[in-house]
């Protein structure tokens, strides 16, 4: 078979579509796995936790994110579209003034950032925010 320009284009787009379809569910389940590992399979309810992230991040290498959850024992941050979704886990000790923390994270592409908080009573709360990323921050 001769490789004409049309053939090559058709092959290329097919491969791209296959790759993007294969990629999506894998990332979603990785995030779910990470949340399940943190909660031990307990149900997670929305609300009771504040996640502050910019709507648009020009540079995915440093995206400022802050999280606050009154009454939380620990808070886990996840980036659903990164090669590895886990970002950081804050564990609060007896001298913590408020149950809040801020840091700067890397985001590979436009995606949802999710925070899951473990409350003192053993329940779990979650909040999410979508961040648009102009330049990805994971290299590769």
């Amino acid at each position: 078979m001769e490789f004409t320009r049309r053939n090559i284009l058709a092959l290329g787009s097919g491969a791209f579509a296959a790759a993007s379809f294969a990629g999506m569910p894998a990332f979603a389940s990785k995030t779910d796995d990470a949340i399940a590992a943190f909660t031990g399979g307990a149900s997670v309810t929305e609300g009771g936790i504040d996640l502050t992230a910019p709507e648009i991040a020009e540079n995915g290498n440093t995206v400022p994110v802050s999280v606050s959850a009154p009454g939380a024992v620990s808070i886990m941050l996840l980036a659903t579209g990164n090669p590895t979704p886990a970002v950081a886990t804050f564990n609060f000790g007896p001298m913590a003034g408020t149950r809040s923390g801020a840091t700067r994270i890397r985001l590979a592409k436009t995606q949802d950032v999710v925070a899951v908080a473990k409350m003192a009573d053993g329940s779990f709360r979650t909040a999410g925010a979508t961040v648009k990323v102009t330049i990805g921050g994971c290299g590769g």
Binding site: V63, N82, A86, V87, M95, T103, R104
Partner: peptide
């Protein structure tokens, strides 16, 4: 006495910054 104990993953930016109370 502990204030905060953070586990960092590779998704934390260069020059890790933290703010807490």
């Amino acid at each position: 006495q502990n204030i905060i104990d953070v586990t960092l993953e590779p998704a934390i930016s260069t020059n890790p910054y933290f703010q807490f109370e």
